[in-house]
Design a protein around this nucleic acid. Structure first.
Length: 572
DNA sequence: AACGATTTCAACCGCAAGACT
DNA sequence: TAGTCTTGCGGTTGAAATCGT
């Protein structure tokens, strides 16, 4: 260790380092610093950016979370399958395994595997308990073979989360195997080597918690990532039932207050996030996106629950902290596409959908992302310190401590975009190649696509409540926005490359005072956008019908401009 | 409203190896 | 060659969320 002392908060020089979760401000700062100084020499980066973090911490944060190459969200079924297979071959070489799953960090994989192991352990424990019970034997977890730890297959060794008494006292009812489970058991358990393979028919008792969850309504809740999978992707092995026609969870177990059960747990949110979106941790955003837009899915918690908990109805979009979300550092970094020309947003007039899509980079990167410096309108300061001192780059001025990045990262800036343009929720397309998530099958315009944390093939901007409900929703920077993204219209037209560069145009938004968005509204039915019917989230709905989006929902998004290309025919 | 069980995840920790001086 | 720095890896921890009761 070179950076952390015993308490981990000081380096060997006695320098204090902040620990704990990263704030959005820190994320933004780091992201922009990396953009400017490039990766490497993290200690220097940390120092130059004025972050009170160790270089190690900065590196970790970037590599595992903020880097545009990192894909967040739950592992897909295919990825889960891969991990399990690869683990058999490579063991716990997470970084190595991660190489087979682009965009996934070793930490993510490791976490998944640990959860997977625990599932197996629980399953095996239940089986053992059931057997013991059937034989009239007293059961104790310590009797389980391999209790001391996991064996090489990852089966049965961790009992940290199960007490013997609990294990032995579960109802006979049992969970509905293959359908229920706390963590994607419907799929995972059927994986090769998974418990389903090993004991697909034997489980007759579950731990208390699972029983509660599974038994009460006859259906176990689906974990968020399951819902995520349900949320419109075309992944194999979709849940066998409970799917709305459009691919959205609509089945049993998601009614009433149990709408869209969230996964349990997760790390804490920084204060600033908690204030706005208590229930929308980054990892939940995918679910939030899926469910918010997912019509029947509903919010993660039941509306009444959220209302009770937060004092307001569930918000759409999600927390900062997720790639592909406005406000997330990743969203501030334009994908690097050498040679890809940028298109400019014409000034004045309501932008068409395609223009908006082109402008999406301003969502993902509000002030533009010129190599070396994020904004063409920002003074190229010689140092962070200069920016800090002058505060010249922040049009917001005295709101909070001087921050050279504020101009770029403030919710206000982003919010302004939505105050002056039709709405968020569109996407940009870092890769000219058709995205698997933008394949014309319908997923492209799915709610997932709005709030998905995923970045890369279908980067999007979310409808974060931070940017619509925030009281800071007022300032209005001016800028020129460019995009090098393939618009969806071009995409659907079969274009494989970004159109030739268009002349630069300035975009000069008019001042945008506070937006007053309705907290709730009912969306008109629209066969073309049926997927969005019944939006549960007033926030999402509000944004979808933002002042510049009179058409309502995505209908407005698509239809409010004369040169709007309209939605693709294949989008259903 | 409070509770306990359970879960996930980000962040941390300690170590090792390679690069650098 | 030795000491220091930087990077990366795998294991562990703890916060905070869920659920039903």
């Amino acid at each position: 260790m070179s950076e952390d002392s015993e308490d981990g908060s000081k380096d060997r020089k006695g320098q204090d380092f902040k620990k704990g979760l990263w704030t959005q401000e820190e994320d933004n700062t780091l992201a922009l610093c990396v953009q400017r100084f490039k990766e490497g020499n993290w200690s220097t980066i940390a120092m130059k950016c004025g972050l009170q973090r160790s270089g190690k911490s900065c590196r970790l944060r970037w590599v595992k979370h903020l880097s545009p190459h990192v894909r967040s969200g739950p592992l897909t079924e295919e990825e889960q399958r891969k991990v399990i297979e690869l683990q058999k071959v490579h063991g716990n070489k997470w970084s190595h395994i991660a190489q087979f799953l682009p965009g996934r960090s070793d930490n993510t994989i490791k976490n998944f595997w640990n959860s997977h192991r625990k599932r197996l352990a629980r399953r095996a424990a239940r089986e053992a308990a059931a057997r013991a019970k059937a034989q009239g034997l007293a059961y104790d977890v310590a009797m389980l073979p391999g209790y001391e730890g996991y064996d090489s297959e990852g089966t049965l060794r961790d009992s940290s989360h199960m007490g013997g008494s609990q294990l032995g006292s579960t109802e006979e009812e049992g969970e509905s195997e293959g359908d229920t489970g706390q963590y994607g058991s419907s799929y995972l358990d059927a994986l090769p080597g998974g418990p389903y393979e090993e004991a697909s028919s034997s489980a007759s008792s579950g731990d208390t918690q699972r029983m509660r969850m599974a038994g009460a309504h006859g259906h176990a809740p689906r974990m968020p990532h399951q819902m995520y999978h349900m949320g419109g992707t075309k992944s194999p092995g979709m849940p066998p039932h409970g799917m709305a026609p459009g691919g959205w969870q609509q089945g049993p177990g998601l009614g009433g207050s149990r709408l869209g059960q969230m996964r349990g747990g997760g790390g804490p949110l920084p204060q600033h996030q908690q204030m706005h979106m208590r229930q929308l941790r980054p990892s939940r955003l995918s679910i939030a996106g899926a469910t918010d837009g997912g019509a029947a899915g509903g919010p993660l918690m039941g509306p009444s629950q959220l209302q009770r908990k937060n004092g307001h109805a569930p918000l759409a979009g999600g927390a900062r902290g997720h790639p592909g979300q406005a406000g997330h550092p990743q969203a501030l970094l334009a994908p690097q596409h050498p040679g890809a020309p940028r298109q400019l947003t014409p000034a004045g007039g309501p932008p068409s959908f395609s223009k908006m899509m082109q402008d999406a980079s301003l969502v993902g990167g509000f002030a533009g992302f010129e190599p070396g410096w994020p904004s063409p309108h920002m003074p190229k300061l010689e140092s962070m310190e200069e920016g800090m001192q002058s505060n010249t780059v922040s049009p917001l001025g005295g709101a909070g401590p001087p921050n050279p990045f504020q101009y770029l990262t403030s919710p206000t800036s982003l919010a302004h975009h939505f105050a002056t343009k039709p709405i968020g929720g569109f996407s940009q397309f870092p890769n000219p190649a058709p995205s698997p998530r933008f394949d014309g099958s319908g997923s492209a315009f799915s709610p997932r696509f709005d709030a998905s944390p995923r970045y890369g093939s279908g980067f999007k901007f979310d409808l974060s409540p931070r940017f619509d409900m925030s009281p800071r929703f007022e300032a209005s920077p001016t800028g020129t926005f460019e995009s090098n993204k393939l618009s969806p219209a071009d995409h659907f037209a079969g274009a494989s490359s970004v159109p030739a560069k268009k002349p630069a145009t300035s975009y000069s938004p008019s001042p945008a005072p506070f937006m007053s968005l309705p907290r709730s509204l009912s969306l008109p039915p629209d066969p073309a956008y049926g997927r969005f019917h019944g939006l549960e989230s007033p926030t999402l709905a509000s944004l979808l019908v933002s002042p510049k989006c009179e058409g309502g929902a995505f209908g407005g998004l698509f239809n409010d401009s004369p040169d709007n290309e309209g939605p693709p025919a294949s989008r259903q």
